[in-house]
């Protein structure tokens, strides 16, 4: 059954939930007709704000997304959410559970939540996250919140999709401190120190401020927020911070330019992803790839490096 892209686009504009949902599937799964639908979505000028949320596992990303949604709903804005969870490397299946922490909006037709599996992608997003967000924007959801996988790896993809990225950190979490040291601070535009009612939150605040100052940010106070997302505490301040960040940073023209650039970057990313998939398959079949497996990150990096060398030197 070949869907009619025009009808789908009309359905998206009419805010028909089923049409929106199906359009997302068509692009995410590369179902027949996905190219023309992608073109139609790409042509649409975007005005909605994309808010990225990233952070270590257990830092409360979904709960923060839920609380931010409540804040915008109180102002009668329609909110879209794209939540990414990891696919199992063994079966390729996934359990997508972020929706569970967004129960305040379950059944609210003005909140559209879409869960996506990372499907092997490493940058923290699912392959068609940006397109999904764009479809939600087209259906009048603004803002669209994008929540990354959150498995503790460097999840940089969200930078190229979101207008503003919230890095969520929690006290007493070894990963957070690790993140500060590993320079993942660069991913976040704003820093949300969640679970601020827990012991150690003041120390975390001091650490984040110090790290920001070290990186040359004199005005770090306007970029760091403390929240208790389960109770909605500190969330209005985060929302104000998002507006201030977006407003102060650029003129409208700059914003549009940067957005165009990001959109194109995304398309390139998508193409690279597809081409690399193919090339890697060829590499594996070429007999040049190491045959013994491994489990660690460093072993994976070693295999990837071998792959890149092979790419550079292969005949065609």
């Amino acid at each position: 059954m070949q869907p009619d892209p025009e009808m789908l686009v009309r359905g998206i504009r009419d805010r028909n939930q089923q049409a929106v949902a199906r359009a997302i599937s068509i692009i995410a799964d590369r179902r027949p007709g996905w190219e023309s639908l992608l073109d139609a979505v790409g042509k649409e000028p975007r005005t909605a704000t994309f808010i990225g949320i990233t952070g270590a596992p257990g830092s409360g990303k979904s709960t923060l997304a839920d609380a931010i949604t409540s804040f915008y709903r109180a102002g009668n804005r329609r909110v879209g959410i794209v939540a990414v969870d990891p696919s199992s490397p063994f079966s390729g299946g996934a359990i997508l559970g972020d929706r569970l922490r967004m129960q305040d909006h379950a059944g609210d037709p003005d909140v559209f939540i879409r869960s996506m599996a990372s499907r092997g992608r490493l940058g923290g997003l699912a392959p068609a996250t940006a397109e999904t967000a764009a479809i939600l924007a087209m259906a009048g959801y603004d803002p669209v919140i994008i929540e990354t996988v959150g498995v503790g790896q460097s999840e940089v993809d969200v930078m190229s999709v979101a207008d503003v990225v919230l890095m969520v950190l929690v006290p007493g979490n070894g990963d957070s401190i690790q993140a500060l040291k590993a320079g993942v601070m660069e991913i976040g535009d704003l820093f949300v120190l969640n679970q601020a009612d827990r012991p150690g939150s003041d120390r975390l605040l001091a650490e984040v401020n110090a790290a920001l100052r070290l990186s040359g940010d004199e005005d770090c106070l306007s970029r760091v927020f403390q929240t208790v997302a389960t109770e909605g505490r500190g969330v209005p301040e985060v929302a104000t911070g998002i507006d201030a960040f977006l407003g102060s940073l650029q003129s409208d023209a700059e914003k549009a330019a940067s957005r165009r650039e990001r959109q194109f970057l995304r398309l390139v990313n998508l193409a690279v992803h597809d081409m690399t998939d193919e090339a890697f398959e060829a590499y594996r079949k070429s007999g040049c790839a190491p045959t013994e497996g491994g489990t660690s990150w460093s072993e994976a990096v070693r295999v990837a490096t071998g792959f890149l060398d092979w790419l550079r030197t292969r005949p065609n």
Partner: peptide, 16 residues
């Protein structure tokens, strides 16, 4: 079902 390869959305208890 996840282990069988499906993508599962799980929403928890007490759903309307």
């Amino acid at each position: 079902l996840r282990d069988a390869g499906a993508e599962i959305i799980y929403t928890g208890i007490r759903q309307t």
